[in-house]
């Protein structure tokens, strides 16, 4: 049975305890409780955040070194949802997000072993030519050209947030 104290004098051993050490004890306990609370809440929050989500594509992403890519070649860069193309003139990137409702388009041909014939959307059958121009289907326009740059360490960066001209190439 645990009786609650009825007044301050009944706190056990109050007279025997140094005020400062009691304060220290309380402060220590409070810190421990706070730490436990924080740890529990953070653990739970971390678990909530570590779910299998499908995040929005980042505004830009690195895609390795230019020498990693044969010429010609076509590579899907998942992080930034874009096709990185290397042709005889240099690098450019085409948005892989269909201009209709946003499904990811598939390349027809890989530009290396087989010629790149274009892109098709698995959702409602929009077709784009190899330059990303709309051919057919409900897509209202062609695929966007995304800016490609080299960062200070010589890595390729694709920018989703920066459209560029179809003739632009990164020469690297």
């Amino acid at each position: 049975m645990c009786a609650m104290p009825t007044n301050e004098n009944e706190w056990p051993g109050e007279e025997d305890v140094e005020p400062l050490s009691r304060r220290k004890l309380f402060t220590g306990l409070r810190k421990a409780l706070l730490a436990a609370t924080g740890a529990l809440a953070a653990g739970e929050a971390a678990q909530m955040m570590a779910h299998s989500s499908q995040p929005e594509p980042p505004e830009s992403a690195t895609a390795g070194k230019p020498e990693d890519y044969a010429a010609p070649s076509l590579t899907f860069v998942r992080d930034v949802r874009a096709y990185l193309v290397r042709d005889a003139l240099g690098f450019y990137a085409l948005d892989a997000v269909c201009s209709h409702l946003g499904c990811l388009v598939r390349a027809v041909g890989d530009g290396q072993n087989s010629p790149l014939l274009g892109f098709e959307c698995p959702c409602h059958n929009s077709h784009y030519d190899a330059q990303g121009e709309r051919i057919s289907g409900p897509a209202p326009r062609g695929l966007r050209y995304l800016a490609v740059e080299l960062d200070s360490t010589g890595n390729l960066i694709i920018h989703r947030d920066r459209e560029t001209h179809p003739d632009d190439r990164l020469i690297a």
Binding site: L20, R22, R23, F26, L33, T37
Partner: peptide
């Protein structure tokens, strides 16, 4: 002295309450 003791107790109780809520 008593004031000091209580001054330390209430934050402790509040923290314990918070821990209970989180638990």
């Amino acid at each position: 002295m008593r004031r000091v003791a209580l001054a330390g107790l209430w934050p402790l109780l509040a923290t314990a309450g918070l821990l209970l809520v989180v638990v």
